[in-house]
Lab assay of single mutants.
Amino acid sequence: EEERTFTNEEEARKAKKEAEKRGLRVTVTKDGTTWRVRIG
């Protein structure tokens, strides 16, 4: 499991799409101005 943080919503969405392409489970949460993308 890996967690990545982004300040840019577009980049967070891109990371989510890429992980889904690899067949991984992805959770995206917004924490104030930060987007957290949890993969795995």
Results as ranks from 00 to 15, higher is better:
E1F: 15
E1W: 15
E2Y: 15
E3P: 03
E3V: 12
E3G: 05
R4G: 05
R4E: 06
T5G: 03
T5I: 14
T5E: 09
T5H: 07
T5L: 12
F6D: 01
F6W: 01
F6L: 03
T7L: 09
T7D: 13
N8W: 03
N8I: 04
N8P: 01
E9K: 06
E9V: 07
E9D: 03
E10V: 08
E10Y: 11
E10M: 09
E10K: 09
E11W: 04
E11I: 02
E11A: 09
A12E: 01
A12N: 00
A12G: 01
A12F: 06
R13I: 15
R13P: 01
R13L: 15
R13Q: 14
R13Y: 15
R13N: 13
K14H: 10
K14L: 12
A15I: 06
A15V: 08
K16M: 14
K16R: 08
K17Y: 13
K17P: 00
K17F: 12
K17G: 08
E18T: 06
E18Y: 05
E18V: 06
A19G: 04
A19R: 01
A19H: 04
A19Q: 03
A19S: 03
E20C: 09
E20I: 07
E20H: 04
E20R: 04
K21V: 09
R22A: 10
R22H: 09
G23I: 00
G23R: 02
L24T: 02
L24D: 03
L24Y: 10
R25V: 11
R25K: 10
R25H: 14
V26L: 02
V26W: 01
V26P: 01
T27Y: 08
V28E: 00
V28R: 00
V28K: 00
T29M: 08
T29S: 07
T29R: 06
K30W: 15
K30S: 13
K30I: 07
D31K: 05
D31R: 04
G32A: 03
G32N: 04
G32T: 02
G32P: 00
G32Q: 04
G32K: 03
T33S: 12
T33Q: 13
T34E: 12
T34M: 13
W35R: 12
W35N: 10
R36S: 04
R36C: 10
R36D: 02
R36T: 13
R36A: 03
V37S: 00
V37F: 02
R38Y: 10
R38L: 12
R38H: 11
R38Q: 09
R38N: 10
I39A: 03
I39T: 05
I39V: 07
I39G: 01
I39N: 01
I39D: 01
G40D: 13
G40V: 14
G40L: 14
